[in-house]
């Protein structure tokens, strides 16, 4: 395969650009209320679209495995909160279901 370094640098540039430019644009300016409300909704909207529908294809051979893992995260997370146990537990549950299915 050809040298990939130029490709990697190009990818780095187009990744860094969109991450940086808003900081340069908005710094030190007060945003209008409507824009502020919009920005406030970005996290929830983004996370929703990042999880769904991707998660249904997280274990392509057996979608039920990933869904079971996420069910654990949902139930444990609502019950006790935290992040480490919900994350590690979801991997364990997914592993277990994949193991049973094979």
């Amino acid at each position: 395969m050809n040298n990939l370094i130029p490709l990697i640098l190009g990818m780095a540039a187009v990744t860094y650009g969109p991450r940086l430019i808003p900081f340069l644009m908005l710094t030190n300016k007060k945003t209008p209320k409507r824009v502020d409300a919009f920005l406030k909704c970005i996290p929830v909207a983004a996370i929703g679209a990042l999880i769904i529908p991707g998660v249904f294809n997280a274990t392509p051979d057996m979608p039920l495995a990933a869904i079971s893992g996420m069910a654990f995260t949902l139930i444990y997370g609502l019950w006790r909160g935290g992040i480490i146990i919900p994350v590690l537990g979801s991997v364990a549950v997914t592993y277990f279901i994949l193991f049973l299915g094979n």
Binding site: I47, L50, I51, G54, V55, A58, T59, A65, A66, G69, M70, T73, L74, G77, G82, I83, P86, V87, G89, S90, V91, T94
Partner: peptide, 11 residues
């Protein structure tokens, strides 16, 4: 493969 999704959900 489920870890990142679980992370986002837990957050």
């Amino acid at each position: 493969g489920v870890a990142l999704y679980a992370l986002l959900l837990a957050i």
